[in-house]
Write a protein that binds this DNA or RNA. Structure first.
Length: 225
DNA sequence: ACCCAGGGTCATA
DNA sequence: TATGACCATGGG
């Protein structure tokens, strides 16, 4: 099965996902750090804490003492590490002229900059590139590896960049009709993979194959309005 | 009580 | 290059 065919099935079953859930581009970047190995429901609580405290900007975060920032991040887990990562990211953002200035960089250069921040790895950087900087980058997470390994399209344990390049190159070849908006395609695709992972397939490996067929029994209950 | 979540870093071999 | 330990809360 082609990658674009999998996308079409996922979209049909789960509907448009409206990602990334956030009120601002800065909030997207904060969420990308806070959601590292963490359920999104917990991240929402931490972001709500930041908003309530008036700390949802780089300037306000760098001005906040570590203990206070960590306390606000408590619900998202790893609060000491994430407070440090969030601060260092905000410092980097301010040192480099802020979002608008960084958005002028070419994608590869911007990625290198993001990866130079301690605590920002491949997936977090690509989340930001795709959802905050609108770059045509395919985000590879554990769900993506698991789903497409089950479909037999990847081994699952390849290096991050190898999997990302496989998705980007393959989709570019398969969907020339959409290649004026690969950012839109990649945004929706990654969101759909996450939505699919939260489905019944999580504890039933065979369901990943089942759900991609037209007669999947779970189709009615999961289809979007 | 156990498992895992929209990862990343570090030490070790 | 490739494992394993560590970080920590909250929901199923």
């Amino acid at each position: 099965m082609q990658l674009i065919a999998v996308f079409d099935r996922l979209l049909e079953q789960h509907g448009p996902q409206h990602w990334w859930p956030a009120d601002s581009l800065f909030e997207v970047m904060v969420g990308a750090i806070l959601t590292q190995n963490t359920a999104w429901s917990n991240v929402e609580k931490a972001i709500a804490n930041l908003k309530r405290a008036g700390k949802l900007s780089a300037r306000d975060i760098v001005a906040t003492p570590h203990a206070e920032l960590a306390a606000l991040l408590t619900p998202s887990g790893y609060f000491n590490i994430k407070a440090q990562r969030l601060r260092q990211f905000c410092e980097w953002l301010l040192e480099n002229g802020g979002y608008a200035r960084l958005a002028q960089r070419e994608t590869a250069q911007l990625r290198r900059g993001l990866l130079s921040v301690h605590g920002i790895g491949n997936e977090t950087a690509d989340d930001m590139l795709l959802y905050a900087y609108a770059r045509p980058v395919f985000v590879i997470d554990a769900y993506t590896r698991r789903l497409f390994a089950r479909l037999g399209l990847v081994a699952g344990d390849e290096p991050y960049e190898a999997v990302r390049e496989f998705f980007e190159a393959t989709l570019a070849g398969e969907s020339p009709a959409r290649d004026d908006d690969m950012t839109g395609l990649f945004s929706e695709y990654h969101a759909l993979i996450v939505a699919h992972a939260k489905h019944v397939c999580r504890k039933n490996p065979a369901c990943d194959r089942c759900c991609l067929r037209a007669d999947c029994p779970s189709r009615q209950q999961s289809s979007a309005a």
